[in-house]
Design a protein around this nucleic acid. Structure first.
Ligand code: SF4
Ligand code: SF4
Lengths: 136, 136
DNA sequence: ATATTAAAGACTTTATTTATCTATAATAAT
DNA sequence: ATTATTATAGATAAATAAAGTCTTTAATAT
């Protein structure tokens, strides 16, 4: 069980977009170049962030991506949910319906992590990294 | 990111072994039959639990598996570490050495979950399920 | 010596993640 | 209108990881 690379990408995209919030739209091309990752794959991840309403996209010349949500409000968990999905980490395949004690414990553990990550905003990272150069 | 099926198996093995702690060794055959899962695959998982010193195994007739650690002390996290490994959930592949803020936040979140699961013992589930029949 | 049991290794299958390629749609600039 | 620029979507491929099987070996009790 590991976070996917997509989540790593997504977190960095948001941080970068926070740092460049004044620069207008950032194109896929710009982002892919800067982070030196596959453009079309990155595109899918950015689209997930769009669908999660964290960022918005505009087509055409001078288009690209920009933050949609207030930057101070974007939490780690917002991003993680967008890329990892919303299901529980522990899902029993044997007796799916019945909520059991094991599942309750695992869910409560996940809740603790989740609550923490919902409180932590990516803005905090960005602020510190401004002036420190590239984050990736 | 999901817990593997192996973790699900392992948690249930421990619960079952706690419930049958008086019955002497439980053979792979017995366990695989009872839970109706692949014997050789289950074997690998049990071996992981042996290596984690949660249970012990003895070869030969009347051999099998039995708890090694005191049953009241076996936590969810003990089992999870045995099957999922000990690495962090979030591992950055880009600048591995440098501990950054993102990694710190993700690690702290994981810590909260971990601490909770280290405190929760599987014994509690077993006690309740005694008298309620099969757990799987 | 034999039967019973676990462990280990090589391997296959399946599922998931990561990545690419191509076509389509939207928009701005000319 | 046409063209250039941009994002989205779908199909597919490649890479990696998880789940499962098969076979051999080692240990132990009878
Ligand atoms: S900022 Fe942290 S997570 Fe991002 S590339 Fe650097 S080390 Fe990795
Ligand atoms: S006890 Fe819970 S985790 Fe286990 S099989 Fe039943 S529902 Fe699934």
């Amino acid at each position: 069980m590991k976070y996917t690379k997509a989540t790593n990408y997504a977190l960095h995209m948001i941080v970068y977009m926070i740092e460049h919030a004044q620069s207008g739209n950032l194109s896929l091309h710009t982002l892919a170049d800067h982070f030196n990752v596959s453009a079309t794959y990155l595109s899918k991840i950015l689209t997930q962030l769009v669908k999660a309403d964290l960022i918005e996209s505009t087509s055409g010349a001078n288009g690209g991506y920009a933050l949609r949500k207030k930057m101070e409000d974007i939490s780690y968990m917002d991003v993680i949910k967008a890329t990892e999905g919303t299901g529980s980490l522990f899902e029993c395949k044997f007796q799916e319906g019945s909520k059991c004690l094991i599942q309750n414990v695992m869910a409560e553990a996940e809740n603790l992590m989740e609550t923490y990550l919902r409180d932590k905003k990516l803005y905090e990272v960005a602020k510190i990294q401004i002036g420190k150069g590239k984050s990736f």
